[in-house]
């Protein structure tokens, strides 16, 4: 990524990471909040580029921001509503290309929040070390929990009747 062209740098980061950041927030809070929160993340990306404070690793930086923003959002909502501080069950995906894709999405949505988060980060290309730094746990703990998350996901897929994907 070129440091000399801010728009080009922004485009590259946006193209590489927007979908995964949006999916992360969408699974946490639904589509409307996902738009607002993703926008906030990429506004921070733009500001970092504009102020020449580009991190060495955009992927890790962006997801660290996403986790912090998610926690802030939960705290704000808790303070406003005095509701229990939990992540809402995500809405069903709005896809129209086959039952199997909806079924795998439901299997993912049904996982505990922590497992879902780990799987999303892993799928987005973060290493165990980077995930650990983002969630403030060790890389070995990440690997152990990821293993369990994958196992649980597989079991839920089988429960949904998906035997080949």
């Amino acid at each position: 990524m070129s440091r000399s062209d801010p728009i080009q740098t922004f485009d590259a980061v946006y193209a590489a990471l927007f979908n995964d950041v949006y999916a992360y927030f969408c699974l946490c809070f639904g589509e409307q909040a996902a738009q607002d929160l993703s926008q906030e993340i990429f506004l921070r990306v733009w500001q970092a580029i504009d102020r020449a404070r580009e991190p060495e690793n955009w992927r890790a930086w962006v997801f660290r921001c996403a986790v912090n923003l998610k926690n802030d959002f939960l705290r704000r909502r808790y303070a406003e509503n005095h509701a229990q501080e939990t992540v809402e069950p995500p809405p069903p995906p709005s896809v129209a290309d086959g039952d199997s894709r909806i079924a795998v999405a439901k299997a993912l949505a049904a996982l505990p929040e922590e497992e879902r988060e780990l799987l999303i980060f892993k799928n987005a290309g973060l290493s165990s070390q980077e995930i650990g730094e983002t969630l403030h746990i060790s890389a070995s703990a990440v690997r152990t929990r990821l293993q369990k998350a994958k196992q649980d996901f597989k079991q839920r897929l089988e429960a949904e009747g998906i035997t080949n994907a």
Binding site: D20, Y22, C26, L27, S100, I102, V104, L108, N123
Partner: peptide, 9 residues
């Protein structure tokens, strides 16, 4: 399956 599930969102 995980890639498919996430891309649904």
């Amino acid at each position: 399956a995980l890639r498919d599930a996430i891309s649904a969102y």
